[in-house]
Amino acid sequence: MSLAPRKPARVQLFATCLVEAFFPETALAVVELIGREGVAVVFPPGQSCCGQPAYNAGFREEARAAARRQMDALAGELPIVVPSASCAGMMKHHYPRLFPDPAERAAAERFAGRIVEWSEFLVRGLGVRLHDTGPPLKVTWHSSCHALREMEVVPCAKALLAGLERVELVPLSHETECCGFGGIFSVKQPALCGAMAADKLADIQATGAERVIAGDCGCLLNLQGAIEARGLALRAQHLADFLRERTRGG
């Protein structure tokens, strides 16, 4: 039995700063995947960064300013789709905590209620069914900490991967362990960040897969940077890009 999900006519896209700066094709992939289901996407131009970097660095005032800006830029009632679980987590779970003022807090809570991580939106909001058009391929999956523990959307990502008939998913032996990015952590503790990334890469290599898929741009920045520094024949890819690639012409 499948329940038809309540499909909105339109959604807002919050691209995130990492996607805009480093991975614009990820946003395009999300727009395409959503658009295929007959949902219109709008891109509010006043958006910038969710504020998580400052929040995690201890700069609360700056984080609050960023949050106010996004709440203002993404005003309205439409669901806000976010292609990165950590940014989604910031907006959904931490915005309300940023504001001691009750009125602002209530506004942040209403805003938080509109935030939806993109893979969850595809699975639970749109009931997407995928048609795999790619060749047989072995991949592995990295659960980002925020997707796993904050947004709890890993089952959605895995459901999407499972929908790809010719893709074999080989699990990591330490699938739920952090890749070592941690935003500011990666520059405050470079040795630790590097050690954690190295262990993650070894785990990925042990699967025999040539690609690691994840749903969080922070992890991808870390993994891809570590892969390139070592010159490994591996690729870290966002799930949205992967889905778009696998379902082209389908």
Partner: peptide, 27 residues
């Protein structure tokens, strides 16, 4: 500090906002 264990991050050359506008995604 980042580059002690990572390759240098490269900004994308593509302008997301312009591409979206061309695709007719409203602002």
């Amino acid at each position: 500090r980042w580059m002690r264990t990572h390759a240098e991050p490269r900004f994308s050359r593509r302008n997301l906002r312009r591409i979206l506008r061309r695709q007719g995604i409203p602002d």
